[in-house]
Design a binder for these strands. Structure first.
Ligand SMILES: [Zn+2]
Ligand SMILES: [Zn+2]
Ligand SMILES: [Zn+2]
Ligand SMILES: [Zn+2]
Lengths: 165, 165
DNA sequence: AGATGTCTGTAACAATATTGCATTATTCTG
DNA sequence: CAGAATAATGCAATATTGTTACAGACATCT
């Protein structure tokens, strides 16, 4: 069995986060998007676990002292992160997760969502996309966006019975 | 170019509906699900167009005289239709549509959603599912559900400029 | 400093979905 | 058929997710 697409529970998650933040700054520089302190802090909340979080869950985790960000603020920041490709929306859960892969355009990717540990992972799936393309093309359907989300149980959760971190 | 997966705008939609209702009664009989008058009327609302409708949109279209169904009632009925396989949820739109295909288990199907006319169509995509399976299996991920929704423009809408019915 | 554009704050609200409990309809049993 | 059990629907309140409109703060560029 090849490698697990989900990070090992014992991986160095700190460097996982810092690497992603570094990449995010690079990407934003390239795209002339400003990664403000607030935007970075939202991205860090998404990066803090490998899970997808709802907008209001982000708000809760973000509140320092008594100050809560307004929903609209979070949604605006999420929009920026989404269009910069730093995060993606998990349609089946109305939630959002940080992108850790190095893909441009979501094309050719699929998303795995574990029901046990709630973690999310992206994977390359060029063959699946090829097959989809042949269905759409043969029926004259012009694709603008494809949503490919798969729910199930990750290898870690299957092994340990108890959910992984 | 093979056939369009969406029904032709000039198709006999009346018999389209009645055929689906007939099938629904058969399926419910097989599965010992009661297709009550209310449930059938919700299914008819979904069948009235080839579009996906939100729960509250169903409520509006369903109201006779001044009586509106409560949200909970519609959601309960939707749940029954979903588990009987008579309708499906369109995750990317928080909406629901009637199933017109003859598939058991949503496996091997994908959903096309037209941004022009808002119609929805299901298509067989065994190759795509095969490719997905090989990705998940090789990473030890046990799939329970796959969501495969494709947005774009249907052949009718591309031809006519104006959206089809 | 002043003008411009982007970012964030505040308040209200809209849209989607669920919880808990009461009532009615249907089916089952005797 | 009566009565009990189960399933379906009604009703009220509430939770969750997402948006509109407008004002103030901050950065950037003359
Ligand atoms: Zn990590
Ligand atoms: Zn897991
Ligand atoms: Zn039709
Ligand atoms: Zn169309």
């Amino acid at each position: 069995m090849p490698d697990n697409l989900f990070p090992r529970p014992e991986h160095d998650h700190g460097s996982c986060i810092e690497h992603a933040i570094g990449r995010a700054h690079e990407i934003c520089a390239e795209k002339s998007v400003r990664l403000t302190a607030l935007r970075e802090s939202v991205l860090r909340v998404l990066l803090s676990s490998h899970k997808a979080l709802g907008a209001y869950e982000i708000i809760e985790r973000l509140q320092t002292d008594g100050r809560r960000l307004a929903p609209i603020s979070v949604y605006r920041i999420i929009d920026v992160l989404l269009s910069a490709g730093l995060a993606h929306r998990l349609e089946s859960k109305n939630a959002f997760f940080a992108c850790l892969s190095e893909h441009d355009s979501a094309n050719s990717m699929l998303v795995l969502v574990c029901d046990g540990c709630y973690r999310v992972a992206e994977a390359e799936a060029p063959d699946a996309w090829g097959a989809i393309k042949s269905v759409t093309q043969s029926s004259g359907f012009a694709v603008t966006e494809t949503i490919l989300e798969i729910q199930g149980t990750c290898a870690d959760c299957r092994k340990t019975t108890r959910p992984a971190a």
